[in-house]
C-alpha cells in the first residue's frame, strides 16, 4: 500500500537495479530514449525564453528592444541553437514514439533505422532553420 505522502521504502541495498549502469553498454536505442527525456526537460526550461519574449512584447517597445538585443548576444544564440536542436529532436523522436503507439516499427532493424532517421532529420531541420533565420 502507498499513501498520498509517500511509498513504503523497500530494502534498497540488496535489491538488484536494472539496467545495472556500471556494466551497461549504451546502445543507440537506449541512448535516444534517454535523450528524449533529457530534451523534454530542457524544452520545459526553454519555455521560459518564449514566455520572456511574449511578456516583453506585451510590456512595450523598450522591453521588446532590450529582449531582442539580449537574444542577439552570442551566448543566447548558442542557447537558442541548442533549444532548436532539442525541439527538433524531441519532435522527430516523438513522431517515432507515436508510430510505436500505433503498433508499428518494433522490429530491431526498424527501431535502429528510425533512430538514425531521427538523428539525420534533427540535424537537417536544425541547420535549415538557422540558415533561414
Amino acid at each position: 500500500m502507498h499513501s498520498l505522502w509517500g511509498q513504503k521504502q523497500m530494502n534498497r541495498s540488496t535489491r538488484p537495479l536494472s539496467p545495472h549502469l556500471q556494466v551497461y553498454r549504451l546502445q543507440l536505442t537506449s541512448g535516444l530514449s534517454v535523450l528524449h527525456r533529457g530534451t523534454g526537460i530542457l524544452l520545459t526550461i526553454g519555455t521560459l525564453l518564449l514566455v520572456c519574449w511574449l511578456a516583453a512584447l506585451a510590456a512595450g517597445p523598450e522591453a521588446y528592444a532590450a529582449t531582442q538585443a539580449w537574444f542577439g548576444t552570442w551566448y543566447m544564440k548558442v542557447l537558442l541553437f541548442g533549444w532548436s536542436a532539442a525541439l527538433f529532436y524531441h519532435l522527430c523522436n516523438g513522431i517515432r514514439h507515436l508510430f510505436w503507439d500505433a503498433g508499428m516499427g518494433y522490429e530491431l532493424k526498424h527501431a535502429y533505422a528510425s533512430g538514425y532517421a531521427v538523428l539525420i532529420a534533427t540535424a537537417v531541420l536544425t541547420l535549415a532553420t538557422w540558415i533561414a533565420a
Partner: peptide, 30 residues
C-alpha cells in the same frame, strides 16, 4: 522522498499554469 515529490508536483503544476497564463494573456494584450 514522499513530501519532496508531492511538493515538486504541486510546484510544477502551479508553475506551468502561471507561465501559460502569463504568456497567453501577453499574446491577447498585444
Amino acid at each position: 522522498t514522499g513530501w519532496v515529490k508531492m511538493t515538486a508536483q504541486i510546484a510544477l503544476k502551479f508553475a506551468c499554469i502561471l507561465l501559460g497564463l502569463l504568456a497567453a494573456i501577453a499574446v491577447l494584450k498585444v
